[in-house]
Each structure stands twice: as structure tokens, then as C-alpha cells.
């Protein structure tokens, strides 16, 4: 390349840098798009599906509709749900017949450290007793602590009347 060509290229290169700086200059006077995280939080997280939760039942508003079928635990790819059943003997009004055996959900142990939020439990639940929560900032220091009993959580929520 001769001298003339090099000068032309240098000028073109400088011009391209000036154009880029112009873009930066324009954006320098636009409003800030980031937030200072711990002091402010973003609001676009509302549609995020957090961990799995038990929903208040449509038939049983003070508890859950769960029929203890165990479909959620069977379909889970990582085995993070454990359905603990409480078997009760209900007195039959007819004293001649045997007492009826009923199953109740005692606890639904949920291990969040294994959950990949795929939604297989939510989709396969025959009574729509499970859903995704909006509790998205759940974090613990120890892996052992990132477990919870979903039944206890539901009762806590119903008692206080707000989302935990």
C-alpha cells in the first residue's frame, strides 16, 4: 500500500471511531437502565415461576385438594417430592360395617436443591393441587436448609393470609 492509501485508511479508521464515540455520547444522556440491586429491586420478576407450592383447594379452601395419589412424586425427574401419607380410620355411621380407611396428606417434603422447575408435577396433578409460587428470592447458606414441607407452608400462608 502506498502512502496515500495509508493516509486514507487512517482517516477512515478515525472516522469509524468517531461514529462509535457518537453513539456512546448519545447514550450517555439517556436515562439509566440498571438499578442498584440491594437498594432497589426489579419488578419484571412477577411472571417468573418460582418453586413448587401447594395451592389452596377449590373444594377445600382451608387446606389442599390433594388426594395423595403420588403422581407428582412418581413423575418428578429428580425425586425431589416426598408424599408422606397419614392413614386414619374414620368411624362409619353404620356400626355393623368396618371403619373406613381414609388417607390424608401429612406432609409434602420438597427438596428445592434438586428441583429443575420443569413443571411435570404441576401438569400431571389430577386435581391441580400444585402450582408455581412467586417466591423467587429463596436462597440458603446450607444445602440442607433448602427443603421445606409444602403442607406446613400452605397452612402458614392461609393463617397469615399472605404470600410468604
Amino acid at each position: 500500500m502506498n502512502l496515500y492509501g495509508e493516509i486514507v485508511e487512517a482517516i477512515k479508521g478515525l472516522y469509524s471511531l468517531a461514529v462509535g464515540m457518537g453513539v456512546t455520547g448519545r447514550y450517555a444522556f439517556k436515562p439509566q437502565v440498571t438499578v442498584h440491586y440491594p437498594r432497589k429491586t426489579v419488578d419484571n420478576i412477577a411472571t417468573y415461576s418460582g418453586h413448587v407450592e401447594l395451592l389452596p383447594g377449590a373444594k377445600n379452601p382451608s387446606g389442599t385438594d390433594c388426594i395423595v395419589c403420588g403422581t407428582c412424586a412418581r413423575n418428578c425427574p429428580s425425586g425431589c417430592l416426598d408424599v408422606q401419607v397419614l392413614e386414619l380410620m374414620e368411624e362409619n355411621p353404620d356400626p355393623e360395617k368396618k371403619p373406613k380407611k381414609i388417607k390424608k396428606l401429612n406432609a409434602l417434603m420438597y427438596d428445592y436443591s434438586y428441583c429443575s422447575l420443569c413443571g411435570q408435577c404441576v401438569e400431571n396433578c389430577p386435581v391441580t393441587a400444585l402450582g408455581f409460587s412467586h417466591h423467587v428470592y429463596w436462597a440458603e447458606f446450607d444445602r440442607k436448609d433448602i427443603k421445606m414441607d409444602l403442607v406446613a407452608r400452605l397452612h402458614e400462608q392461609l393463617k397469615t393470609g399472605k404470600e410468604a
Binding site: 477512515k12 479508521g13 478515525l14 469509524s16 471511531l17 461514529v19 462509535g20 453513539v23 456512546t24
Partner: peptide
């Protein structure tokens, strides 16, 4: 187009 101005045409 802004990306083009800012980066793609950039000499460096």
C-alpha cells in the same frame, strides 16, 4: 444499525 455504527464498522 446502532450496533453496526458502534462496533461492526469499528476500525480496531
Amino acid at each position: 444499525p446502532m450496533y453496526k455504527d458502534l462496533v461492526t464498522d469499528n476500525y480496531i
